[in-house]
Nucleic acid binder design. Sequence first.
RNA 1: GCGCCCGUAGCUCAACCGGAUAGAGCAUCCGCCUUCUAAGCGGACGGUUGCAGGUUCGAGUCCUGCCGGGCGCGCCA
Length: 593
Amino acid sequence: MSDLKRGLGEAVQAAFADLGLPPDLGRVTVSDRPDLADFQSNGALAAAKQAGRNPREIATAIAERLAADPRLASVEIAGPGFINLKLTDAALAARAAQVAADPRAGAETVETPRRVIVDYGGPNVAKPMHVGHLRSSIIGESIKRLYRFRGDTVVGDAHFGDWGYQMGLLIGAVTDENPAIGAEVERLNAEGSTDEPVPAVFEAVTLADLDRLYPLAAARGKEDADYRDRARKLTAELQAKKAGAFLLWRRFAQVTQEALTRDFHALGVDFDLWKGESDADPLIPEMVAELAAKGLLEDDQGARIVRVAREGDKRELPPLLVVSSEGSAMYGTTDLATILDRRRTFRPDLVIYCVDQRQADHFEIVFRAAQLAGYAHPGQLEHVGFGTMNGADGKPFKTREGGVLKLSDLIDMTRAKASERLHEAGLGEDLTVDEFQETARKVAVAALKFADLQNFRGTSYVFDLDRFTSFEGKTGPYLLYQAVRVKSLLRKAEKEGASVGPIAVAEPAERDLALTLDAFNAALVEAYDRYAPNVLAEHAYRLAQSFSKFYAACPMLTAGLAVRASRLSLAGATLRQLELALDLLGIETPEKM
RNA sequence: GCGCCCGUAGCUCAACCGGAUAGAGCAUCCGCCUUCUAAGCGGACGGUUGCAGGUUCGAGUCCUGCCGGGCGCGCCA
């Protein structure tokens, strides 16, 4: 079952082939001029250019071959050689009926499913999530769901940032502040085992402590060489699995993961794997040996590196730093080892790194090194970068007090506002307290996620609290509102014994809704190919809007029997597709609001 | 200095391999609730797509140069 756009595309392409023209020029797109047509093909223009012929002539020849197509009410040539295609109401109705009958609401699956890993780019130990972390989790989650829905086998991995120099900094800062912990670390380093449980003294460490200490330690590490050297030494101790350092680190990871799990859960984001950089650590020795055996490793200024620069590069790309002069594994080391680990345990066809755009160079370096080492083919590793979130001043977002806004605070604020609005509107009064809370949570999450996902991931954007927590216009709550209206309508219809029936389209709003329903698959394909959830978000919004217009223009319960049955079918198809699209964006739909 | 990204309506963002009249939302103004949820619907206003060239039948989109902004450039992650 194919959507109309593709079906018509095949017909036009066949007509191009008939005329001895390149078939791929016969691509059909949704019309730019809905007043003139439903779909259009611009291929005659490109073909004319290639063949040195008159475009209108070619367009006319194509149109003659399409005239007999029973799906088309009209085929017209316009302007320099646009081919305008208008569908019959019957063809539209038939397609809408297909969508209505399809559990996948008209969405197809990929021909050859792949094994895919989505790497969420690592929330870090010791750093509570702030608004800057919204993007990787929201975009990553949506991409994961989208790929899975299209038929791929997908695993989402948090890729926890839990290894490296920052851990050494923290171990130093915490032991300095709390001598009891320091003494216990010393004792365990000397005579303990990493198999022991985390000692009770370490439980004094909270996420708030880490959050407070880390920026101080990082700043001091930058200006104080001795402090930095000590932190590096502690990092090396941790990576050498000294029991004291290791168990204290376990405590850091514990408290952080608890908080992160809570925040992610509130956002409806869940990982299939909660692996960390530390999990790749055991593979590092053999990986280093292998890199050396392959002749890829070079000694340079006391460190060991892999050179990845290529002939023809526009500038010199720095090498991958595999082993620091202190003997520590670096960011790129664990990333490369993780590629090796995944290759062995999952054999992915594709790994999607959903990470800040600023790390593009880093990934280019790691990916090149992976290819040199034979761990990956070109195209198998994709960095899907996203822009940064800035404040109204164009700089990274800060609260009025100058601090970062914690993600959990943002969610709470938005949820409180949603509750307030529900109360104001007198909505949800028949809900229990729990149901009401749950609805407010869903509204809040929808607002936050949709505000992010409607932007193309690659561009940076301004974080505006009012806009993020806005419930009117092109927002998540608008989409939920439309879905809930359909649900309410269908409940009422059921109570009145009204049933669905064959779909007919006649009114402009019905035609428009049917066309929008048809566009779902194309939106999914594009969002999938371009790693661009905003394409899907845009479709969901258009669908909600089409429905809202239809809802206003086409009464259902008061209509005649056949019309009512048809419109209820359209409403049902809309609901299913809208809920599916929202789910793929990671947005849950409440029953009532 | 070198490299990457960006510059679209007052604001925040879209725009499918280069196509017709560059679209939404917010804001402003005007209409629409005794009938299915008004968090809605309809309408108005709003543009030299940073500037200057070039390629093309056709450029927001491709090329060159400038201006403005963001980011990155091995021992943080």
